[in-house]
Structures are given as structure tokens and as C-alpha cells.
Amino acid sequence: MDALGRVYEHYYPKILKYMYYRSNRENYEDLAAETFRKVVRNIGSQEGNFEAWLYRIAENTVKDFYKSKGSKLRLEESVKVAGNVTEGESGLTRTEMKMDIYGSLDKLNEEKRRILTLRFIQGLSSEEVAGITGKTPEAVRIMQFRSLIELKKIMTEEKAT
């Protein structure tokens, strides 16, 4: 297997997860595959940090997908998560709690969702996120904090209603 094949093996699960939490949960496999097609097509022009370049391609693929759909897709439409259903302390099942986060995450704006997805779901550092988004690490830290507080607020409000 060539170097690009190894890169694909390493990054495909990560990009798949990124797409799952950035898109409408239905087309994430197609979007992940499309991202790698773009990578193969444009690998010759790649410069600088490969991972940052890859995530930028992934983000553009998501944006193109939204554009082709004409409007932003709401995640709640397709929140059907399979998983172990265990009783939590709050009385909510684990799946129900996750569904809360999915729905609330979708209510954040695109930029905040992107930061949270990269930082926590993808597990990248603030510096790496800064490299992908073109912001300073300090700006990323400020935005991640605000986004988390906003997410918590949305979830609290939703529970109250």
C-alpha cells in the first residue's frame, strides 16, 4: 500500500466521525468518501500541515453539501442513534442524554459547532484547531469556552421546557 493509502486508513475514521457530527447523520459516509476523493485529486498542491489541510477540505465538503441542499439541515431530523441503552443517574437513558447533546449542538452557529467538533469530538488541541480554522489559539480557547457555556444553556432551557 502506498503512502496515500496509509494516510487514508489512518484518517478515514476521524473524517467519518467529523462528518457524522457536522452533517445530517445520513450522508456522512458519502461526505467522508468525497473528502478523500478531493484529497487524491489535490494532493499535488498540498502545502503545510497535512491534517489542517485535510480538515479544511472536509469542512468545504460539508459546506458544499449544505449549499447543494439549499439550506441548513437540522440535525434533529435524523437523530436516530443506535447504542447501549443504560439507565443514568438522572433517570434519562444514556441515549436520551446523547440525543439532547446532538440536538443542542445543532442549535449553535456553524463556527461554534465546527470548533467544538474539532476540539472535543475530534480530540484536537487548541493549537491544532487554530491551524485548521485560521484563528489564534487564544481565539479558539475563548470561542470553545463560550460555545460550551452556550451549549449548556441550550440544554438547560430545553430540559426546562
Binding site: P13, A33, R37, I101, Y102, F120, L148, I149, K152
Partner: peptide
């Protein structure tokens, strides 16, 4: 807590990992 909850989100279900030769 919110950050930890996000980190704890499950992996997406994968139907089939496409072969790299299809990508190329």
C-alpha cells in the same frame, strides 16, 4: 462537564469502509 460529554459522544455507525482503490 459539557466538554467531557462531547468527548464521550459515540462513534458513528459504519456500514462499510470503502476500499482505497475506489477513492483513487
Amino acid at each position: 462537564h459539557m466538554a467531557m460529554d462531547l468527548k464521550d459522544l459515540p462513534e458513528p455507525p459504519v456500514s462499510k469502509v470503502p476500499d482505497f482503490s475506489i477513492i483513487t
